[in-house]
Amino acid sequence: MNKKILMKGNEALAEAAIRAGCRYYFGYPITPQNEVPAYMSKRLPEVNGVFVQAESELASINMIFGAGACGARCMTSSSSPGISLMQEGISYISGAETPAVIVNMMRGGPGLGNIAPSQGDYFQAVKGGGHGDYKIIVFAPASAQEIVNFTVLAFDLTIKYRIPVMILGDGLLGQMTEPVVLPEMKEIQDDINWSICRGQDQVIIRSLYLVPENQLELHNLHLQKKYRSIEKDLNKYYEQYNANDCDYLIFAYGTTARVCKAAIDRLQKENIKIGLFRPISLWPFPKEEIISISSKIKKAFVFEMAQAQFEEDIRLSFEGKKEIKGFYKLGGAIFNDDEIYELIKKNI
């Protein structure tokens, strides 16, 4: 096993991508993810990879569309405003079914907002920020180590399912330095039989189907079938922290969930039976598990750095059967554990 080293979240992500076989990176500078392109620009040439600083996020997402059309393991990274610009391309990539790993280290919004950590892009990520009926796989890690693990998984899944996979972090996770264990460098030879540039009969990578009934409708039905099978396959990515035999359960993801744990430790010392349920894959959403756990508790709390976006999916899972109380931080503000502790004490 490789030894533990200290790395910034963004750099750990970049190195994990390379070890997962990513050899093509296209990106445009934006804070708080600038360590990713900086790392890639130095490291990719060492492994015979390609780094291109694109002229915009519109260009970078389309460059990975081109690279993905060749069946390549490719990645772009950005932060909220840049990810908004990429939505057009994400819709096209989803329609055309090419692989792409997209990193969003979220920052405060709306608009130019600020460069502080946020979870305000939840809807955009999991409900589809671009046009049309499509889904992308979204992982929300909560530590540098999880960033590494889920980045590696993201590349395998994007190749397997030909669907964009997003790593949804935030400025805090990207900037924080933590110990990580990196995986071995993978020697990748993906067995791809659908891509362009294989010297075979014509391959067309497209999202245009002019006839509704027997073309675009069928294509959409095919996509929906794929999404249902992904939902079935990827239903195990969540963490439960002291979640058995609880009166109260906190729902939170990413950075916020981590802060919640500290509050839970304090509350438990006071014999308050409270735990945490943390989805790691935000789509597919671990709905079944949440439905099952919801029947065992008295009341749920939701904490997120956004206005009741993640909470909406919790409510949809609960179907109104139990009380849910949500707490939000907006515009790049973050929770601290004292605050969470007090809020829980007041509301139980």
């Binding site: 990975i64 569309f65 490719c74 096209y92 245009l208």
Partner: peptide
């Protein structure tokens, strides 16, 4: 062939 979004053909070509 790859079909591009409006205006993005050279970016796809680059990739």
């Amino acid at each position: 062939s790859v079909e591009a979004a409006h205006g993005r053909a050279p970016a796809i070509a680059t990739g």
